[in-house]
């Protein structure tokens, strides 16, 4: 067991930490509201290789492991990156894995041009892909429909859906001219792995959201005074923060284990993807809620940054589903493994 990032992993973390500190200070996050998309940040992320890292070398990328991508996602979460990084990466990854001309062309556009390709996390209902992440700014969307993995241009950019987390979401109508990439069991397998990858990366992004939320709360609790003492000396405050710190620390271990398992413990990869995202979602929500509440009335003011975290902690994972639905998926995996074990 080794819980320390390797030297290269540490370099990757440092590089992206420095990148976000420079390109994504909180003023940029605020400036990107309410659309939730900072086109300049997106361009810089692409220039950094954030999309290429997701794709293997034959398809023109650097073939980073899911764990490496997870470390980047954590930084993205810490800084509330207003750009559909995770969806862009997952879409690129699934296109590379799918193969075939149509997928390769879309992937080429995603990597080469200023062309944003995203992925819908659920099949369409009544001809509409609901709450597509990045959907209001995407040029193309990959989706799964009736046993087929498809891709289509987002003709008129989807109507942005106003939402809790200031995310660039849209409901996107399915175009009958959508291109089929692959069908059958293979298509389903590809879609499910893409969803697992999204869950793992989101879990790690939420670790960043939770960790930064906690820091904001702890810093405030050390400075703010009431009744002549710092509020952090009240146990009611300190204990809430201690619980949140423990949950966030746990979420970090679990989210990293989930990312690691993708290549090192395949039998548990899906289970851990689901469990880690559910847990990180709850830990981040708890940490941001506690920290906001311990800001008192100021936490309720737009001016204080904690509200930015509180809203995203809830909304980012919600485009997949509530934590319970993630737990249920994880349990289904465990149950089917237990059934075969006898």
């Amino acid at each position: 067991m080794d819980l320390n990032p390797s030297e290269e992993q540490q370099q990757l973390i440092d590089a992206f930490a420095a990148f976000y500190a420079k390109e994504c200070p909180v003023e940029r996050v605020r400036a990107a509201e309410p659309s939730g998309h900072d086109a300049e940040l997106w361009a810089s992320l692409r220039a950094m290789g954030a999309l290429e890292m997701a794709v293997d070398e034959e398809s023109g990328g650097w073939g980073a492991s899911l764990l490496d991508m997870a470390l980047v996602a954590e930084q993205h979460g810490r800084h509330l990156g207003p750009a559909p990084l995770i969806e862009g990466q997952v879409a690129a990854k699934v296109l590379a894995r799918t193969g075939g001309d149509a997928a390769a062309e879309t992937l080429g556009r995603a990597l080469g041009d200023d062309h944003l390709v995203t992925i819908a996390l659920h099949p369409p209902q009544g001809g509409v892909l609901s709450l597509v992440p990045g959907g209001s700014v995407a040029d193309e969307v990959v989706f799964f429909d009736h046993g087929r993995l498809k891709c289509m241009a987002v003709a008129e950019r989807g109507r942005p859906v106003p939402n809790t987390g200031s995310m660039p979401l849209a409901d996107v109508a399915v175009d009958p001219a959508a291109v089929e990439l692959v069908s059958g069991a293979e298509a389903e397998g590809l879609f499910e792995s893409a969803r697992d990858e999204w869950l793992v990366l989101m879990a790690n992004a939420l670790v960043g959201v939770g960790a930064r939320s906690l820091e904001l709360g702890v810093d405030y609790a050390k400075e703010r005074r009431a009744f002549g003492v710092p509020i952090g000396s009240f146990q009611a405050v300190a204990h809430g923060l201690a619980d949140a710190a423990t949950a966030v620390e746990g979420s970090k271990l679990l989210a990293r284990e989930a990312a690691w398992s993708a290549s090192e413990d395949a039998a548990r990869a899906t289970e851990l993807a689901c469990l880690s995202c559910g847990f990180s979602a709850e830990a981040a929500r708890e940490a941001s809620y506690r920290s906001l509440h311990y800001h008192g009335g100021y936490g309720f003011m737009l001016e204080f940054d904690i509200q930015l975290y509180f809203r995203r902690a809830k909304a980012w994972p919600a485009v997949f589903g509530e934590p319970s639905s993630m737990y249920a998926r994880g349990a289904a995996e465990r149950l089917s493994a237990a059934r075969t074990d006898g």
Partner: peptide, 18 residues
């Protein structure tokens, strides 16, 4: 039932890792 089992499984993994 699945949601309850899954929540416990996540927590147990966290306890174990900590």
């Amino acid at each position: 039932v699945r949601a309850r089992l899954g929540r416990a499984a996540a927590e147990i993994e966290v306890s174990t890792l900590l």
